[in-house]
């Protein structure tokens, strides 16, 4: 998980973007995308675009914010686990693999 977070951070360029979009939100979404994965195939006729799909979730108002809040909480949990090295073969580490499988 730590490796992956470093990679995400390396993707950031410039202070302006960091200013308008708090890092914790980005990271929580990163964690969320890793945590919530299913085997359902995609059926979109066109590529919906990653940013476009995630943004729609954010624009979803209360429901979206709730999801984001939940993801943020998961992110904090993960952070603790990585700091205290407790994430040996837990559920989170498996999800983390799917997240880092780039």
């Amino acid at each position: 998980m730590r490796l992956n977070l470093t990679r995400v951070q390396n993707n950031k360029h410039g202070s302006i973007r960091r200013f308008v979009f708090p890092r914790f939100l980005t990271l929580s979404l990163a964690a969320a995308c890793g945590l919530v994965t299913l085997s359902t195939p995609a059926h979109a006729y066109i590529d919906p675009g990653t940013g476009g799909m995630l943004l729609q979730l954010l624009l979803g108002g209360a429901a979206g914010a709730l999801v984001i809040g939940k993801l943020y909480w998961l992110r904090i949990k993960e952070g603790f686990q990585s700091i205290f090295g407790g994430g040996s073969e837990s559920e989170e580490s498996g999800d983390s693999d799917s997240e880092t499988g780039n």
Binding site: K12, A30, G52
Partner: peptide, 13 residues
């Protein structure tokens, strides 16, 4: 969001 996640393999849909 696109910058952060477009290059990952995660299947968002």
């Amino acid at each position: 969001l696109d910058r952060s996640f477009a290059d990952t393999d995660t299947e968002m849909r």
